[in-house]
Write a protein that binds this DNA or RNA. Sequence first.
RNA 1: GGAGGGCUGGCUGAGCGGCCGAAAGCGACGGUCUUGAAAACCGUUAGGGCGGUGUCCCCGUCCUCAAGGGUUCGAAUCCCUUGCCCUCCGCCA
Length: 432
Amino acid sequence: MIDLRILRAEPETVRASQRLRGDDVSLVDAALALDERRRAALTRFETLRAEQKSIGRGVAKAAGDEKAALLARAKTLADEVKAAQADADAAAVELDEVTMRIGNLVIDGVPAGGEDDYVVLRHVGTPRDFAAEYGPDFAVRDHLDLGELLGAIDTERGAKVSGARFYFLLGVGARLELALLTAAQNMAVEAGFVPVVTPTLVKPEIMRGTGFLGAHADEIYRVDADDMYLVGTSEVALAGMHADEILDLSTAPRRYAGWSTCYRREAGSYGKDTRGIIRVHQFNKVELFTYTSVDDAEAEHERLLALEERMLQLVELPYRVIDVAAGDLGSSAARKYDCEAWLPSQQRYLELTSTSNCTTFQARRLGIRERTASGETRTAATLNGTMATTRWLVAMLENHQQADGSVHVPAGLRPYLGGLEVLTPVDAGGRA
RNA sequence: GGAGGGCUGGCUGAGCGGCCGAAAGCGACGGUCUUGAAAACCGUUAGGGCGGUGUCCCCGUCCUCAAGGGUUCGAAUCCCUUGCCCUCCGCCA
């Protein structure tokens, strides 16, 4: 939710942001008009209510005729107050409906446009030239071929048990995922993040508060019998953790590294990435989440990005960093950086991390505030970023494959795999 | 699943339907005392909306005692509904 005070004080800033996002600019003026109406209705109600309270106090002290007269006046006032309150409430609801549809204020420098208008900030690492290494006839294996050779991924049985977009990770697949996530959480802990294992079922108000019931409502699994939602990321639980709290962020931000399973319906992506485990209904993720003061938010965003990049470098993946365009930010983010790893089998980049600076947008709706040094309260800023996910296995298998179908294990992960240096194909028996 | 109990300020915990946004204690913060600290003593201490003058300090007013309805001139206090928490029993792990 955007700040109404900014909307009133600098409507042109908000309009410009809406324009950059390609969103409806007229919402700004609609909100301003409704705000005007709401404040007028509120003043009317308050005036009447103040009189009612004052007369009410008089009733208690008065007696006889005087009391009767006051009671008569109070009776008519009671109805007027009730009506005025209904007016003010209705105006507030209408205003809320409109302001909820306005996206977060985009930060200066974010590229305009939609999904394809991102700006590439840098490339790190170099994609391998398999033809040069193994000869022109070498056929690059995709992650599913490799995963099956290694006895690491079984999508057929995943489908048998749970349907399309489900899978089993087994053998070195299971070990590799645990190694990756453990390494990620350890790196985050060393950087000062508190490790957390979060709930994955949350109440409606938390899901709504984090903004995931808006445009992305179709993506979310709902457990009907209990009116709960399965989270698509631990960001939901981590943001909800301090809802309606006033935090002391004066000495340091609150930093968490949440480990959770994530669930996504992938409604709307029929036929897209259907092979393997690129796009699945269930996966695991270590997510960075920071509560900080709004002044520090942009610097923290750079820190999160730097940590993500360190993790990508630990597992030796070639990647690029993009500054996501305004129209592709989603309503909460004021800026978003994605890291995309090279995917040899498809000759394209695949998103592995995404870090968003939500400034005060998410925190305002969740009632997350901080106590400033001068003792005042103000809305905190929240940021999140991906430290590692199951999807990383896709890029790791493909980029680290060798001619015989074995897969090189990055040195940084070996401590988590008992020193294992190479994942080697199993014979047919390994899968059966 | 069955039976009870309960939701009040950072915490504990009072609160006859009418100066109750709320006693008291703890904690926190400031001060006195002290070489310093502790103790003691004094003081301050919920959040938010709107308006005003002001604009690094205030003033007025309204809302909030789990949420939403209702009764009443007036609700933290009475009634209803919902949610959540706790205890005991049963069942399952």
